[in-house]
Amino acid sequence: AYTALAPPGAPPARTRHGDHLALYWADLLLGLAADLVEQAPASPEVRCRLSATVGHVLTRTHRGQLTELHLQHTHPAQIPVADLLAMYADKAADYCYQLPFTLGAILGGLDPDRLGATRTVLETVGVASQIIDDIAGGCPQVLEQGKDSIGEITQLRRTVLLCDLARRLPAGDPLQPILAGQATTPEQTAAIREAFLTFGAVTAAATRAAALADQAAAAIDRLGLAAPATAYLHDLVDVRVRHSLGVLTAGDAVGSG
């Protein structure tokens, strides 16, 4: 809707008026959840826990977004994978996966220890899902999910996929100095997308996601949740991660470099 209201112009202008405004609006709506907490038909103690949960996710989300901006000043080959995964956990996993379950679990009376263990599983699923999104947006022809994050490549966002590529490029490859920069031309963007496959960056990223999915799936049955919640969590792993990994394998489209 915001993009439709944007003035005519180049894609960057439409992004500023469309995608960026939509994201800021979504962040505002999440903050307004605090108003709903005040109206919740629950005890003051429960409302306090709900309010603290909303505040916690807002803190983590903004920390993750700031970390992402900070990483732009580091060559992608020099960014530790652990730092990228921690950033994904902050900016995406809590917001999209942990928060909804946590609010429901608090209202449903789930004991804090079991909730903490479940949040750990959901964070793992969320990080794996973010890696899948990297692949889907970076190589849309591979997963065909209708997602094309070309802006992330043209702005050289430090994703797991980009950093894996930077580490796998041979010394002297013409893409090395390009990846160290802050923006690409259309021709360079196309070359980077091809390199994701040629040098096995998609395979490396998918392998990380698969390991995280296996870790989460192995922990779900140990949580001791009721059957519907257990089935929901397994379904989350399958739909958000394993299905996409199956498409990658079936398509035989990833490089093996």
Rank of each mutant, 00 (worst) to 15 (best):
R60S: 12
L5H: 05
A92E: 02
P41H: 11
D94E: 14
S129Y: 14
R157I: 00
I150Q: 13
R119M: 06
A117K: 15
Q72C: 07
A180Y: 03
A226E: 15
L29C: 11
V127R: 01
S244I: 00
A128Y: 07
T207N: 09
T120L: 03
T59W: 08
H243L: 12
A253W: 04
T102N: 06
V241M: 10
H234T: 11
R114V: 10
R114F: 04
F199P: 00
G64K: 06
Q98E: 14
A77F: 06
A229N: 08
E144V: 13
S149D: 15
V239A: 04
R60P: 09
A211E: 14
G9M: 04
T198Y: 12
R193M: 09
P8A: 12
G246N: 03
S149V: 00
D221C: 04
T59K: 04
I132R: 00
T67P: 01
A219T: 13
A183S: 14
Y95M: 06
S129V: 00
S129I: 00
F199L: 06
L169T: 03
Q155M: 05
P112R: 13
T249P: 00
A22I: 07
A205G: 08
Q155H: 10
A52H: 13
C48F: 09
L115Q: 13
L225Q: 13
R157M: 02
S129W: 03
A217F: 05
P100H: 08
Y2T: 03
G116N: 12
L161N: 01
V127D: 01
